[in-house]
Design a protein around this nucleic acid. Sequence first.
DNA 1: ACAATACTTGACCATATAGTCAAAAAATAT
DNA 2: ATATTTTTTGACTATATGGTCAAGTATTGT
Lengths: 212, 212
Amino acid sequence: MSSEPIPFRKFSKRSQNQKAILKAAEKVFAEAGYAGATTQLIADVAGLPKANVHYYFKTKEEIYRRVVYNIFDIWMEAASAFETELGPKEALSRYIDMKMDLARSHPYGSKVWAAEIIHGAPIIQDYLEGRLMEWTKDRSKHIERWIANGEMDPIDPAHLLYMIWSTTQHYADFGHQIETLNGGKPFSDAQWKAAKLSVKTIILKGVGLSID
Amino acid sequence: MSSEPIPFRKFSKRSQNQKAILKAAEKVFAEAGYAGATTQLIADVAGLPKANVHYYFKTKEEIYRRVVYNIFDIWMEAASAFETELGPKEALSRYIDMKMDLARSHPYGSKVWAAEIIHGAPIIQDYLEGRLMEWTKDRSKHIERWIANGEMDPIDPAHLLYMIWSTTQHYADFGHQIETLNGGKPFSDAQWKAAKLSVKTIILKGVGLSID
DNA sequence: ACAATACTTGACCATATAGTCAAAAAATAT
DNA sequence: ATATTTTTTGACTATATGGTCAAGTATTGT
């Protein structure tokens, strides 16, 4: 009848192993898809026997949920660029920078998120309807205010956000294609810097904000 | 020893059924992923018994190959906007229009393509290294010429192409998310028109081409 | 009419995999 | 030391699924 073991002791075996499993799962889900990801492979990548994985997580779906939620939280946090009361140029510029940095640092997460949406968001639907919609509406208001103030061109905020999301996430989700077209080599630091600058330059100028 | 039956008689049962299977498969692969797609479900959607599907296609992978190749060919064809000797404004504008139209008309294909790349292009890798790279290099030359002629801003052509690809395909691949943020309703004709205009406006202006 | 070829389909099989379980080992508390 | 709880792990099971097959039916050619 014990069921839930003591949940939190920092650095306990429990949280260590859970972290290892989730990290392995993120990679495996990204590379093989939900159905193609086997708990056996997740266990192998995490360096544990399969039964141990099921000791910490009841089902594969539970692992997947945790991975997807985690990504969503990271995305949301990155949106803090909009919180500040900067002008549009600085706010959008920082947001794009952050999203590009996340594309580089969390490519697996981005891929899992993309696949989840492609398949109709069976797990994250409630987040889309709740937190994401709220967030989007709020940021759209910021953008509309900038437009009303004549600080940038009149662009439908939704389409501007979609452009920022798609363009930045493309460097993660389609990283394999980009790498192939780059001669099979991953981007260097300099190439990432150039990518960020290109994206910012086109989008900012595209909505009437010189970047200089 | 007959093996290959007479292959082509327009409207033969053979080609009709193959077409139905491929259409069903595109939808099922898009919605469930490669591993999650069952031949049973493909058969059901196509309205045939499963054994019949295997009569026309030896393996699931063969069906998948055909679906992916088909999408690739459609993408490539859409690139004809670049063939013409128009200026950058007209050429890019037409290309974006075509890609947006394809996002609307072939969302399943776009999703299958996206998932294939996300998973490391296990099937289409040779196309990426061959036809896509060739195509990309060629179009990049066009863009570089425009830049050299002072017809547009100096932007790395690769990043401009990535932006066009990602932005347009986003309306297919992330269509579910967009629909959710649109109150659960798919885009109307007017909304698609507005989307196209927004994308074109930002990108063209962003590279120094007024749209007027 | 007859033969040959193309298509259909239910039943079947081998395999892969998510999840279980019980027994042992390790860690922790008293 | 002893008891209790937490963790580990190999072996096992039920189920789902890709693919086969053989016996049939329809279609086509002569």
